[in-house]
Simulated assay, not measured.
Amino acid sequence: MTPPARVQAAIELLDGIILAARDNGPAADTLIAAYFKARRYAGSKDRRAVRDLVYAAIRRSGELPESGRAAMLGLASENAELAALFDGSPHGPLPWDGREPVASAAAVPSWLTPLIAAPLDKDEQAALLARAPLDLRVNRLKTGREEVLAQLPEGVPASLSPDGVRLPEGSPIEQSPLWREGLVEVQDEGSQLIARLCEAQPGQTVIDLCAGAGGKTLALAADMQASGRLIASDTIRSRLARLEPRAERAGASFIETLLLDQGHEAERLEPLAGMADCVLVDAPCSGTGTWRRNPEARWRLNPVRLERLVAEQARIMDSGAGLVKQGGTMVYAVCSLLDREGRDQVDAFFRRNPGWAADLPRDMPGRRWGAGILLSPAHDRTDGFFFARMKKSC
């Protein structure tokens, strides 16, 4: 592919990604993979160059662009070499006359700006779009961090998590025996801290209420030394199905899975009422804290969806609270930097549930924010998270 043809390919892909964002369609990665599957003539360098252009345009455009061309022109308006490729050559984009709509540059969509947690100034908001490193969690059921670091020359110890190892972005860890043999799992350092906040112990009953594919469940299994009762529940069967092979690889086959019926979870959870030493509620959320990994998520979020998420979070928290025994804890976490989903959500929980109190350890990394902790890429070099631990006193 010629350089102009790569730009045109990026524009076509962006058109599809913008349409999918409007209609809640496939993710950008899925669309990119399908695009190149139908275009076998594109070599690896072409695919990489086009992908880089697509994601550069997505990262630059806070608001949903009018079109893929507008998004790419926005990028070209800041790059003379890229602008020169709008030359009308065969398979390339039509020339740019300077009068067409150009996507505006912003880190945060304008409607979301007032909702971002106050400690995040403009510089911190911009860091939400930087490329993320690759973090690993060492599986203590099988090995230790020093043994893993000895096999990863480019790896460095994570600064906040005692089980964390950081690698350069794009490292092919899934081709490594370390991953295939279950010695490490890919997990952001902030996510590792959330699992550690549960302080799960051998012999306890621990419930991961929104387990997904089980990343935090596996971390809890290591803390429990594969002893006790660890239950991973979710409402999406395909997510839970991915946990079983991961657990087997990690040496954590003691994990139980529980498929829930969304909106009717109480029926399946009733036998567990008042039994858990700890319940982890890693709630569905806007994902604003993961924009550096998934920048197109900014285009998919809207006020109506946010309202639904906030209501769902509150409902799940109240459901999880009923599973905790007296003296037990519940950890609430969202990969979000919006106060509606974080600080305000926990404050509202305390108002609805007077028998609970904040229970954060004093030495927890991150910034105290309300009754919880705020992590951000600029301040903590992790994905963005809000999390809190609450103790049931009666």
Rank of each mutant, 00 (worst) to 15 (best):
S44G: 11
C198D: 06
G228S: 12
R166S: 07
T2W: 04
P177K: 08
G62E: 08
R196E: 13
R249Q: 10
N139A: 10
V281G: 00
P284L: 00
I373G: 03
S336K: 06
L178Y: 01
G25F: 06
L306N: 00
L260I: 05
G372Q: 03
R237Q: 14
D123R: 13
A84S: 11
P168Y: 02
Q125Y: 03
R249D: 07
L128W: 02
S171K: 06
D380V: 07
E181G: 11
V281K: 00
A117E: 06
I255F: 00
S238F: 14
T217G: 06
P284I: 00
K37Q: 14
E185P: 00
R48W: 11
A10W: 01
P133R: 09
L259S: 03
R69C: 08
R60C: 10
C198T: 12
D359H: 10
I17P: 02
A76M: 09
L323W: 02
T30C: 13
R196M: 13
V54G: 06
A5C: 13
A150N: 12
G372L: 02
V346N: 03
P295N: 03
E199N: 13
G355I: 10
M364R: 13
C198F: 02
R137P: 09
G263Q: 06
P114L: 07
G215V: 02
A5Q: 13
S104H: 14
H379E: 14
L243Q: 04
V206L: 04
T205D: 10
T143P: 07
Y35R: 15
G170A: 05
G203A: 08
G274I: 08
E270Y: 05
A283L: 01
S89P: 08
R293C: 02
Q313N: 06
K216S: 08
D383L: 01
R22A: 14
V156Q: 14
L360A: 09
A297N: 04
T288P: 06
Q326D: 12
E185K: 03
C278T: 06
R140E: 13
P114T: 12
R59Y: 09
L112K: 04
R137I: 09
L136Q: 09
S227W: 10
C210I: 03
F385E: 00
V54W: 01
G25L: 07
V281E: 00
R268T: 08
T143I: 13
K391R: 12
E256K: 11
I231W: 00
